[in-house]
Amino acid sequence: MPETHPTTTALAWRRFTSNLPAVVGAAFMVLIALVLLAGPSLLSANPNAHSDAVFEPPSARHPFGTDIHGRDLLARCLVGARVSLMAGLVGAAISVVVGTAYGMAAAYGGGRIDAVMMRAVDLLYALPNVIFVMLVLGTAESAITSLLRPAFPSIADAARMLLLFACLGAISWLNMARIVRGQVLSLRSRPFILASRQFGASPAFILRRHLLPNVLGVVMAYATLTVPAVILYESFLSFLGMGIRPPDASLGTLIEDGARQLNPIQVRWWLIAFPGGFLGLTLLALQSLGDGLRDALDPEAHP
């Protein structure tokens, strides 16, 4: 009877499925994704419809209560969570593409190229990234207002949101570049790469065929951890009034709205507790999922 050895993928899968928090996190995220895809259209409440029922505490009609304009908070949370998750996915995707390409180029280039490229990363680390986002958004926003808004008012908001997502990606690729560089540096002098080079393979071929598949697992794992980081960053910017603009909402703007209603006369806890809880649970699930993936795909790594 032939002895069967589990493949690397099978081993990684086994490590992942034996990690309870990771599996629960993954299940939760699937559930959230389904709810967000179907939810807002199933709800009877319109997230932007004003009503006279302002600041109603949670009830059967409004499970999460209502806000200052009498809007249904559950509907707004679902719409906001959609924007937040979209920001996380788009931002993480950008950081993966840019960070992987940059890290691989630096490590494979080696020597002086590597030194210059990594010093540039250090320089960007020393620049407060809130300022970077503010500057880019500020500059582009006036361009959008002057060029796009008169002609296509409906696209202008979407364009601004997309720009915000791109900025979020642009500030999160630095870590990815460092991780990928470290991986490629350790792979670069392995025998199979040396052999390939000996056979006359071009650098482009080696990067694509040998190095890229070997770093993909690690990249995947850290990309999953980038999603909650970007979501957090987006909510942070929106909370400070620099991210998503009304009437659009993200979980960050909803929490900000709630924080503004803090006063000693009347405690309206639901305005913070529900969007905050929603954000916290999503981040918790994504973090557990990402930790599990990292342990499964990059078992030698230590945080």
Binding site: P21, P228, L232, S235, F236, F239, G252, I255, E256, G258, A259, L262, I272, A273, G276, L279, G280, L281, L283, L284, Q287, S288
Partner: peptide, 16 residues
Amino acid sequence: MVGVCIPTFVLAPLAV
């Protein structure tokens, strides 16, 4: 895990 996942701008208003 809770401390890592609840951002300061949620924790602070709740604490207040």
